[in-house]
């Protein structure tokens, strides 16, 4: 069942070209100011010097350190820009998540949103669920930070932290799906019942996420192989490097969509199983806690 869910979710995800493009575009858009200011600063500082030519063949950290030493306000300014962009990116991503989950639920159920165009329904869903998704994010962040306490123990306790964080991410995804699917406003209740559901179904949920994680690892390995193979010491090669980088960013966004799609399909599959079991009380082996909210 899990593998067929995974295969079906992949097909559904690959159809979401607009969504994938949107995720890539916002990552590019928010990173661009940081890139542009750095690029302009370096160009202006090293303009006319031979440094850039040398860097084409080998990076020399000393030159960069000289610039940082000469421009003491550079690091605080870069930090402010980075944290500012990151915060805005986070808010925008939270905003878009409602739309992503909503459209994916529609796609999985074959609902074409009454012939409405992609953008109006997408942004309408994004706006509608923004504050609910924000609260889910705050819960996940809080629980993840608490989970980091295990790392203080040292040794293999770090694995407990990793496992807990994985559970919070899975719980968070299921919560978002249920909030959008049921159009529910009960975030906290849904979050903790989703946690119970995830724990009850941990083998299948974990397997779906492991398959997605494997996909991410494979994508990273392919990116790393290509990036290492390419020595970007000319204009054309630099262009190729950028293509490889941006392809990786694009597919990383796609994998995030794939995680939602596979979780939606899994949730639906479990829902159907429970519905069929509920229609035959003699076979009802589920307790109340496993019932979806």
């Amino acid at each position: 069942m899990i593998f067929s869910i995974f295969a079906r979710s992949l097909r559904t995800t690959l159809q979401q070209k607009k969504m994938m493009s949107l995720l890539w575009a916002i990552s590019f858009l928010f990173a661009f100011p940081g890139f542009w200011i750095t690029h302009r600063t370096l160009n202006s500082y090293f303009g006319g010097r031979q440094v850039a030519g040398e860097w084409l063949h080998q990076f020399n950290l000393s030159y960069l350190l000289e610039m940082i030493n000469d421009l003491p306000s550079l690091i605080p300014a870069t930090n402010a820009l980075f944290f500012g962009s990151a915060l805005l990116f986070l808010v925008v991503t939270i905003f878009l998540t409602g739309g992503i989950v909503g459209k994916l639920i529609q796609a999985v159920s074959g609902d074409s949103s009454n012939g409405e165009g992609f953008a109006p329904s997408f942004f309408s869903l994004s706006g509608k669920f923004f504050f609910r998704i924000l609260r889910v994010f705050l819960w996940t962040t809080l629980l993840s930070l608490v989970s980091f306490a295990f790392m203080m123990i040292g040794g293999y306790a770090g694995l407990i932290t990793a496992a807990l964080i994985a559970v919070w991410i899975m719980t968070s995804d299921i919560t978002k799906i249920r909030l959008v699917s049921d159009d529910s406003g009960k975030v906290t209740k849904t979050y903790f019942s989703s946690f119970i559901w995830v724990m009850k179904n941990i083998p299948s949920v974990a397997l779906v996420y492991l398959l997605n994680f494997f996909l991410l690892v494979m994508t990273f390995a392919l990116y790393k192989f290509l990036d290492n193979a390419l020595i970007a010491n000319g204009i054309l090669k630099i262009f190729l490097m950028v293509v490889i980088h941006q392809m990786f960013v694009f597919f990383r966004g796609a994998i995030r969509i794939q995680m939602f799609t596979s979780a939606i399909l899994l949730w639906h599959a479990k829902l159907k199983t429970m519905a069929s079991v509920a229609s035959n009380p003699s076979e009802n082996l589920l307790d109340e806690q496993t019932q979806p909210a």
């Binding site: 990173a31 890139f35 440094v51 850039a52 490097m241 980088h245 990786f248």
Partner: peptide, 17 residues
């Protein structure tokens, strides 16, 4: 000046971001 060397690293910086 050959400025491509700078682009090589700033474009990588874009990717890191």
């Amino acid at each position: 000046p050959e400025m491509a060397g700078i682009s090589r690293y700033t474009l990588r910086f874009l990717f890191w971001l």
